[in-house]
Design a protein around this nucleic acid. Sequence first.
DNA 1: CCTCAAACTGTCATGAGATGACACTTGTCG
DNA 2: CGACAAGTGTCATCTCATGACAGTTTGAGG
Lengths: 247, 247
Amino acid sequence: MGRRERKKMRTREALIDAAFELFSAKGFDATTVEEIADAVDVSSRTFFRYFASKEDVALTFQEELMHGVLDAFAARPADEPVMTALRRAVVSVCHTCEAGGLGFDPGRFTCLLQLTNESGTLMAGSLEHTQKKMELITRAVARRMNVDPAADLRPHVVASTIGCGFQAAVEAMHSADLGYTSLAEAADDAFAILENGVNFASAPADGTADGPADTGGGAAVGADGGVKDDVKARKNAGVKVTAAGRG
Amino acid sequence: MGRRERKKMRTREALIDAAFELFSAKGFDATTVEEIADAVDVSSRTFFRYFASKEDVALTFQEELMHGVLDAFAARPADEPVMTALRRAVVSVCHTCEAGGLGFDPGRFTCLLQLTNESGTLMAGSLEHTQKKMELITRAVARRMNVDPAADLRPHVVASTIGCGFQAAVEAMHSADLGYTSLAEAADDAFAILENGVNFASAPADGTADGPADTGGGAAVGADGGVKDDVKARKNAGVKVTAAGRG
DNA sequence: CCTCAAACTGTCATGAGATGACACTTGTCG
DNA sequence: CGACAAGTGTCATCTCATGACAGTTTGAGG
């Protein structure tokens, strides 16, 4: 690798560093591309030669994360059901990131969550990015299920739950009452819910709440029905997931 | 209602009409706000007094749709499990829209789907809009489950599946091989999958595919396990959902 | 009817994001 | 070294978006 390549990489890293420093100091929207570029002493034009947009510099990490999940998902034992494998893949990658792995400054990881939550622009970019990766995820899921994604809707639905799970997890992180301190933990619980089924019984405000009620349609799931997995067992013994369950 | 109110409403309608006409003719990104404004003979500045952004004019319909779903969801019988109620609410609203209800020009409805799929900007805006409505949906779900959304992660996960289901449905619409012709139909199938559980068994490429395999974790779901609902029974008798199932 | 205040609109100015064109500098390789 | 490619800066331009201000329309009330 020649000097040119090295220099490019250094500039890129410097831009990311400067960007995050400014973002966390002033917020995403209040930071201009020119400021980022100036901090690294390049022109704004050059910034856009490294990143397609201002969001893009923040989304770099999401890209890494997503690929990490895809790799981990592919590496799961072949006999794990899809959502189980997906949950474990997501959780392991989150753990890695929060521990500073995959080139993640651990502080910057949580900073990114904060930024995404604060800025609508960044949130939109993040969601769109996830959406653009959908095809990859769908293919990975379909491969594991051994079905054709062009002819089967199921892998599409399963794949889209990854965004859904993350979203719920991030939301949970920002809700003080739920008391999560790590994304891995929140994601574990969120994906466990998806794994065990989400068709929870309705509990009319009157009288006996929460009893399994199959009245409506197919496969209603009780408050803590079907929980036998290692991690979930630990979780469900605690307060968060079933805080209001069968109270 | 005075003349002023009426005039405002007419301008607003005219802007929407002009916008959609231009969008479908030239695409979302290629259409400028100035063009839309000119077509109605107002200044671009005025456009931004009616709509916060260019996306906003298109997202008007999504807003209607979302509120329609929330209303329909609240109106479902109290004994239906949450995902069953959510699926039926979504499907009924989609039907209504595709039939031209709720002030939806039926052609414009499909046009919107097309536009959203083509333009990244619009896609991002659409996703962000859904995300912003999350709190409302979560509250509605929590109310039905009779749990406290601040202390229970489940309603958050359930709520976020609405975006997930729509996304899969829209994707299915744009995949010719799946052969859907109406969003209601696609959404029905997508939400049915969520309703019945998504933790499908992995099917190793070798030998016996698709048999229920509980080996991995909790509650693995067979290819067509737990299907007893009216609509799903119809669907699953066909080709789409289980095209590759137990073949 | 007439007047006044509020609401609505147009014009102007401004700023940020993003992109194309073109010239200049710097690294690479023969 | 010298030719060629890659990377960068400068300049121009477009679009989205917003604030300020002035002119016009409209509704309400004397």
